[in-house]
Design a protein around this nucleic acid. Structure first.
Lengths: 224, 224
DNA sequence: CATCATGCCATAACGGCGTTATCACTGGAG
DNA sequence: CTCCAGTGATAACGCCGTTATGGCATGATG
């Protein structure tokens, strides 16, 4: 029964958002009564917590599996692409996890500042850029990682709020942002553009076979 | 009565967050009954809409009054500082307005993509950077403005979620981000750093007298 | 076999929510 | 004065999360 509840909760959450996830509806869709929710969970909040934790764990696993080629800047860009792609694929989940501050942890009991394994992955990726001489600023790879994360997160957040830039804008906003991040970190502009372009191809190639990593998802367009 | 309701709603929203703003509590704190809420507003949602719209309007007015010196890059950075400062000053309001996608409009009936007057201000500021030869990319000032906005917004969002970078990090994260934005847009690194530093002084000077622009606010630290 | 303890959940309830129907009251217009 | 529009107090409806109660299986124990 517990599994059916989690399943139903995940589906409701993903398809209709958190406001539609009520104990009565959840029980009904799982074919049971509200009482069984409380036999298996402490509260309704624990249910969404469990679903969101599982979802972000999926994202973390996905991000860790991102192929690390020999171009560290492309790797950082690729991580951003995967983050955005996951968010666009399941907007409600992303929004809820973001609102609850769950996106950085991926690990129960983590301290409030970013401490999930993905965070380590990103920090390492940025550190690789520094080591390779591509990045120059900031010297602190944790700070650099945080700035990348903040920018991509903000971009996606605004995108999901329907505030994406007006159509007719020249260039692809997300590509431009990725390039700007690298250049802003000290990379050579031409190399940054090349690395971002390379990461786009890697993403396209790699994204297809890993489709099954996420549960069934509606169509989406990571093109942007 | 209407005013007392709006007042009380604004206070509850700012101090205790949206989840604490119930019709019954609002009526009680305004010294009336729930019915009066519905004589003056269509629904509870309209109440928070009104409060948030007023708050973002305040922010927009504030942003428009930002002194435009002769350094366009410093001006862009200053806009970011003011945005962040307002968000830190009233976290609940910012989070709620952000969740409702109200932050860009500042104007009823605006189309979904950013169309508020502040948006025009930011676009113009970025355009000034392009015209002055400080910025080089992207050529489209709307896109450039969007990228700045997304980064600052993401930074503040994560900051309010308690995911600010670990203490002990070297350098000031927000300063570093502002510098990175300018450099990523093509500015000369040294000039970017100088402009951001200049904007910090301008902000400190200008922030004191305009304290009264916002309603009574708890202590906060825009230092970053 | 009978007995009992345990875990699961159906029913129904409690208080609180947004919202609405009803109606008493007030104050200005004719 | 009457009449009317607007206001809001009372109480209700159907939701919500949560919980008390109790029935029903199941499996261990004698």
């Amino acid at each position: 029964m517990r599994d059916r509840l989690v399943e139903a909760a995940a589906r409701i959450l993903a398809e209709h958002g958190p406001s539609s996830l009520s104990a009565r509806r959840l029980a009904a869709e799982a074919g049971t009564s509200t009482m069984s929710v409380y036999t298996h969970f402490g509260s309704m909040d624990d249910v969404v917590q469990e679903v969101l934790t599982a979802s972000t764990l999926n994202l973390h696993r996905l991000l860790e599996r991102v192929p690390r080629g020999d171009d560290p800047v492309a790797h950082v860009a690729l991580l951003g692409r995967v983050y955005r792609s996951a968010a666009l694929r399941r907007p409600h989940i992303f929004a809820a996890a973001s609102a609850k501050g769950l996106l950085s942890q991926g690990d129960a009991g983590a301290s409030t500042p970013p401490r999930g394994f993905t965070w380590q992955t990103l920090v390492q990726a940025v550190q690789d850029c520094l080591d390779a001489g591509r990045y120059r600023r900031p010297q602190d790879s944790e700070l650099g990682a945080y700035l990348h994360w903040a920018s991509v997160h903000g971009f996606v957040t605004l995108e999901l709020s329907g505030m994406a830039p007006t159509s007719g804008v020249s260039g692809l906003p997300f590509e431009t942002m990725l390039e700007g991040l690298a250049i802003g970190a000290g990379d050579d502009p031409a190399r940054a553009v090349a690395s971002v372009a390379a990461s786009r191809d890697t993403f396209a190639d790699w994204n297809r076979p890993t489709d099954s990593d996420q549960e069934p998802a509606p169509a989406q367009g990571p093109g942007g």
